Lab assay of single mutants.
Amino acid sequence: LVRYRTISKIPQITLNFVDLKGDPFLASPTSDREIIAPKIKERTHNVTEKVTQVLSLGADVLPEYKLQAPRIHRWTILHYSPFKAVWDWLILLLVIYTAVFTPYSAAFLLKETEEGPPATECGYACQPLAVVDLIVDIMFIVDILINFRTTYVNANEEVVSHPGRIAVHYFKGWFLIDMVAAIPFDLLIFGSGSEELIGLLKTARLLRLVRVARKLDRYSEYGAAVLFLLMCTFALIAHWLACIWYAIGNMEQPHMDSRIGWLHNLGDQIGKPYNSSGLGGPSIKDKYVTALYFTFSSLTSVGFGNVSPNTNSEKIFSICVMLIGSLMYASIFGNVSAIIQRLYSGTARYHTQMLRVREFIRFHQIPNPLRQRLEEYFQHAWSYTNGIDMNAVLKGFPECLQADICLHLNRSLLQHCKPFRGATKGCLRALAMKFKTTHAPPGDTLVHAGDLLTALYFISRGSIEILRGDVVVAILGKNDIFGEPLNLYARPGKSNGDVRALTYCDLHKIHR
């Protein structure tokens, strides 16, 4: 019993810090008490220290592992850092350059016999395009090294910054494609005289377009951006097909006994025919423009016929181009109408809503002055909100995010209106959640004399007048207030005048 009563005193000691020596009952000389009392004092002292730490809000209350900052290894790049964003855009520009100039170089340097010394005699450094290609190869190699040090988000939505895990993730992902696209074939085969082989191998750079397509997928929600990307894709495919079309004609031209190829026909049409040795002929500019003209006309199913396939190889390629053109029509131009419709969806919704308003007016036989006010209010409210119901949009977000959005939407009023000066951010967040926005066209009466005042109004834009009878008592403008002081009276009061809008007004109100 003594032991039980001794232990039962522990909660009292913990909360009230009572010393055991003052209790005459606990001072009985028993061996059990002498053993338990020192333990009680020690526990009391420890609990006292913990309570003191909690009340003082000291940093040592938290466990040590929670006080440590997340460790980022040296030379690790955050995937959302500004440097990584700028670097990704730079790589994107280099990939676009590669997609345009690599097929052009591979096709127009394929057994090209233009006048001038061969590239091997001039030297590697004197070729501007080769120098640019070398810079692109170096940048792609540097990009691989950067990807080995860039964080990523795993399946659990955690940012991984450990170098080993980053390397394994990159090896399992895009490393092989990036490595093949970054191989400097110019340096590996330079001086061997195989410019045709170098041009063909350099087309491996186009593998990076797969990554670019995935990154550009984030802009699919913007109709104008999608339309622009589709047109660029169409032009890029036409450019690639033009390079292939020229390569076919250029390879067949020296081996044909009869002059029936499209390059021969082009030379005869523009007065620059090929001679018996295969030299001469149109310039590279004429060849490229004509090839691009043929691919565009074939892809769009126009086909004027002034550039036509004559050999079997050219006919087979033309059939493939027609098939590609039909697929592009289905996948690209078939979506253009939907994209344009999405661009004008706001206008369509406006006309639909206006039609419903006019049908309501016609069905209920609203008189002319009231009908005009109804239409003007709808037009003004639509121009202010673009038909978007803010309350319906915010309803799907958590309250903390709703408060931040409301604070942002009402920031101008909260910053410049005098009653809100000096208020804490928590108070402003709470008030912003209570605001209701209303609009009024010129001549609209917001409050009639004798109406119950259940709200306090803040003028965000425009001006109003307060009338008693036919006498203008006051004219209020931006950041002015009218209405009933909230919670100042037990019952809502009545208006002693009319409140009429002089201009288009936007008002925020808080109800009782």
Score class of each variant (00 low, 15 high):
Leu370Lys: 01
Ala69Leu: 05
Ala225Thr: 05
Thr120Trp: 01
Leu187Gln: 13
His239Val: 01
Ala247Trp: 11
Met328Lys: 03
Phe190Ala: 14
Asn335Ala: 03
Val136Asp: 03
Val212Gly: 04
Leu216Glu: 01
Leu67Asp: 04
Arg362Ala: 07
Asp143Lys: 01
Glu195Asp: 11
Thr445Ala: 07
Asn312His: 01
Val168Ser: 09
Pro82Val: 15
Ala291Gln: 01
Lys436Ala: 09
Glu359Val: 01
Trp262Asn: 01
Leu292Val: 01
Leu109Gly: 13
Gln341Trp: 06
Asn275Phe: 01
Thr347Pro: 04
Arg421Asp: 07
Asn386His: 04
Asp217Ala: 08
Ala247Glu: 01
Ser313Trp: 04
Arg218Tyr: 08
Tyr222Asp: 08
Phe185Glu: 01
Ser81Ala: 12
Leu78Tyr: 06
Leu145Asn: 01
Pro82Ser: 07
Lys272Tyr: 01
Gly261Cys: 01
Lys84Asn: 05
Ile324Val: 08
Val142Ile: 15
Ala125Cys: 01
Ala247Cys: 01
Leu110Val: 14
Met322Phe: 01
Gly325Cys: 01
Leu207Val: 13
Lys172Arg: 13
Phe397Ser: 02
Leu327Val: 08
Val160Ile: 14
Arg342Pro: 04
Cys243Asn: 01
His162Phe: 08
Asn250Thr: 11
Ile183Arg: 01
Gly426His: 02
His408Ala: 01
Ala99Arg: 01
Leu187Lys: 15
Glu157Phe: 14
Leu279Tyr: 14
Ile284Arg: 05
Val142Asp: 01
Leu266Ala: 01
Gly261His: 01
Met251Arg: 04
Thr311Leu: 01
Asn310Ala: 01
Phe190Gly: 14
Ile135His: 01
Met390Phe: 07
Asp88Met: 01
Ala182Gly: 13
Tyr65Gly: 05
Phe397Arg: 02
Tyr222Leu: 04
His408Glu: 06
Lys84Tyr: 04
Ile340Val: 10
Phe83Lys: 12
Asn156Met: 13
Tyr350Thr: 01
Ser345Val: 11
Arg214Met: 03
Ala440Arg: 07
Gln372Glu: 13
Val307Met: 01
Arg165Trp: 09
Glu158Ala: 13
Cys232Gly: 12
Leu299Gln: 01
Leu134Glu: 01
Ile183His: 01
Leu409Pro: 02
